[in-house]
Amino acid sequence: MASSSVSALKTTGAAIPTTSGSAPPRRGAKKRRNRSGYLYLLPGVALLAVFIVYPLVRAGVYSLDTWNGVAPAHYIGAYNWEQIFENPIERGSLVNAAILFAFYALIPVVLGLGVVSLLSRFNRYRGIGIFRVIFFLPQVTVTVVIAIVWTWILAPIGSGSINGILHDLHLGPAVGPAYLGDFSTALLFIGLIGLWIQFGLCFVLFLSGVQRIPPELYDAARIDGAGLVREFVSVTVPMLRREIGAAITISVVASLQSFPLIYQATDGGPGTSTTTPGLLVYKNAFQLGQVGTASALGIGLAVVVFALTFGVRAILERRAV
């Protein structure tokens, strides 16, 4: 699954249900149910075994091999794993992923909190629902489409682009900077596209959260003489703890899965300035014939997703106690 919203769901910690919908009344009945239960599970288990568990094990094996996909593979131990940190391109992709993480997760969360708290009294207005629908649209827009239109907007020249509009207003030269084509700015602007995608998600999430905060809390804070900042720190943020956790986990996963956006907008360039681990998985396995390297990176990415998801969850649970 590739979209950023997949990610949305992938954030779940395991909310394992403990109660059953029906209580088996007799022992005999229980046995019968037990066995027939496997029939209900069989198709699902088969699909999960063949396309989740088996390939995951294969990827683990590949990651310990040097293999070009055709010739016989050779076992090389942890070499591919060491390369993640030692090879400059792979290490660089980790740095890029960390920077994108800020744009996909941290900035939208902070900005979303700020905007929502500025609107904290305003949002009791009727009609604010329409903005929820609008701001969420980037989340449900196909990523390749987003990449194409932002490539136009960020082009050095062309009507309707930032540079084109500035030129029309006599504020810029005929040919402006290539925001996505320059080593020093490409990653920044990929990040800003990520911000455009993720902001609405944070906004919608925080807005519904803030609407559940009793207005009396804000009134009390104001009577105590709290300004906007104080109100933000002592009322809005603590009351939105769960929503903040959800937004961070959703966005973290989205930032690690920016593959279609990067593939379409920059293909990792210029140079390797926007290369991410996800793009390297694709290039190593399917263009450079380095299946082992790609597999190590892919599993590494999964480990990071799990660590961040459960890490955020653990922090939230501890705070909640």
């Binding site: 769901l9 999960l48 396309f51 995951l56 294969r58 996909g69 899965q257 998985v281 892919g298």
Partner: peptide, 22 residues
């Protein structure tokens, strides 16, 4: 259930290489 949770949290990038050969 645990395998299912693992399965949907895995990024495509982690599985796409073995999927291809499979």
């Amino acid at each position: 259930l645990y395998v299912a949770i693992l399965g949907f949290m895995l990024p495509t990038e982690a599985l796409v290489v073995p999927w291809y050969y499979q």
